[in-house]
Each structure stands twice: as structure tokens, then as C-alpha cells.
Amino acid sequence: MISKALVAASLKPFILSILADGESYGYEIIQRVHDLTGGQVQWTTGTLYPLLHSLENKNLLESFWREADAGPRRKYYRLTAKGYKALATEKQQWLSIHEALLKLWGPSPTLSPA
């Protein structure tokens, strides 16, 4: 399992990146993260939704209810222009940390115990 702190930190880039692929709703987002990480990252429902709402408050996302032809009514989220900008910043930050760590760890993909 990945540490709680790291999970918490990755919430925002995950949400922004997933929504950059297209609009989606909460349950689907959790499922995608679960699938993408092979179950390594588990979000609680109670953290996802408030975060979605807070991102919406900051105008990174916008939400709308969609009535499906077959199936229940769901609240969808999508990125705003500001959201796309935030994603770019987020990406850059993660990549720079990622690159720095890679440089430290050398070309070998396997970690040797210090």
C-alpha cells in the first residue's frame, strides 16, 4: 500500500488528469484510479467528493447533472480552462520531482538497499 500522505498529495493531479480525458463522475473516477494503480491507491468516498467540491469552488472544475437514457441521474464533472492550466502546473511539478528522484537513483531501475 502507498502511504496516506502520498495518496492525499496525488489526489488533485489524478482528478485533473482523469477529467482531462473527458467528463466523468465520482464513482467512475475512483474506479479508474483503482484500475490504473492496480488497487494500490484506495480513496475513500468521503475525501473524494469534498475535494471535487473544493476544486469546483476554485473554478477548476464545473459540475452538472446528466440524465442518462438508461440508468440513474449522475453528477458529472469537467475541467474548466482554469482547470487545464492547473493541470499543466501540477504536471510540471510532479515531473520535476520525478526527474530529480530519478537522477538520484541513477539509471538502474532497481533499487539497491543503502
Binding site: Q42, T44, T45, T47, P50, H53
Partner: peptide, 26 residues
């Protein structure tokens, strides 16, 4: 199981409380 995935008891309320004012303002 779904209820458990929601998070610890009381934590949900706290998380929602954090965004409450922002929501009100919006």
C-alpha cells in the same frame, strides 16, 4: 463495504465542512 469505503466515522462530515464556506460563497 460501501459505507466503510466512505471513510472514518465523522471524517466525511469534517471534509465536507472544510469546503462548506467555499460552496456558500460560490
Amino acid at each position: 463495504q460501501a459505507m466503510a469505503a466512505m471513510g472514518e466515522y465523522g471524517a466525511v462530515e469534517r471534509e465536507y465542512e472544510k469546503v462548506y464556506w467555499g460552496k456558500r460563497r460560490r
